[in-house]
Design a protein around this nucleic acid. Structure first.
Lengths: 156, 156
DNA sequence: GCGAATGTTCAGAAATTTCTGAAGACAGGG
DNA sequence: CCCTGTCTTCAGAAATTTCTGAACATTCGC
């Protein structure tokens, strides 16, 4: 049977793997709740109920996930609460976001390249810099290609 | 002044950004030590000195970084200690490694796709699955292309 | 403006992660 | 075999992260 329980379990399971990938617990749980919900949007109260946590925790989690660009606030007429929903391009956004992390690493590596004299360390650092620079350059094209392919594929 | 101090500071700085990217502290510090060293190899003792931590911590850190495939044990004649050095393809390896994480996420997502009936949640989960599947497929080609480009470039 | 509903912040509690130090395991030389 | 130097394991200490609950802020309808 494909009940609410199975859905929740699947959501929690996904949240766990996201935590394993480095995401914070509550943010991951909130994100999974959005992913698995069939409602158009969720309020903070919905999330608190669904996840069984305090309003404070929800506030923090929503803030984080919103900052990652994965969900957005929407205005719902006649409702005083704030509604959130997943953004359409959440996953490509998330992928692109990782680049800010890589950027920071590159800055540190570049600094290293400048500090060490020529030698094995220099070679290693330069290689690392080149590889990550390459990835950074290529990533947008990858995303572009995915979207292209998706457009083509959905009209067979 | 390109002294030892500047080198260490640069190494610690890189370690910090790696921690920011989700790596564990001691593992990141050990990795940075390898990156920035001009020695052919480092022993656990070298690392303990360099990082100012206990043998136990070094043991754990080395184990982790080795498991990630970034360093390897090497045999040094006449030395009873275990020597480690960075692997040549450390960065491309690390990049590929992230796929195991993505794989786990995909398993959870696939499970979700099967559990939810058709509806918004299904659409979202299917999209996520497709995107990450695409990335997983494309990644090896990216690495390949980088290596190709590097070979060509280094013979101008 | 007032009141009610909702959202945010923050100090401290709780849980988790990380590090250490000491004990034990292991390998090689004598 | 034992001894020495080296590495690993692990229980507990220390540090860090995460969650809560209550006080405060904000918004909207009236």
């Amino acid at each position: 049977m494909t009940g609410e329980t199975a859905r929740r379990e699947a959501a929690e399971q996904l949240a766990l793997t996201l935590v394993g990938a480095g995401m914070q617990r509550m943010g991951a749980r909130a994100l999974a709740a959005f992913l698995f919900s069939d409602k158009e949007s969720l309020t903070a109260g919905d999330l608190a109920d669904e996840l069984g946590v305090s309003a404070g925790s929800v506030s923090g989690a929503v803030k984080m996930v919103a900052q990652m660009g994965l969900i957005e606030r929407i205005y719902v007429a006649g409702s005083r609460r704030e509604h959130f929903r997943m953004r359409d391009n959440a996953w490509t956004t998330l992928y692109s976001r990782q680049h800010t992390v890589v950027d920071e690493i590159l800055v540190a590596v570049q600094n290293g390249v400048e500090v060490v004299g020529s030698g094995p360390a220099f070679e290693r650092l330069a290689y690392m810099r080149d590889f990550y620079t390459f990835l950074l350059d290529e990533a947008p094209m990858l995303v572009e290609r995915f979207e292209q392919q998706r457009r083509d594929g959905s009209r067979p």
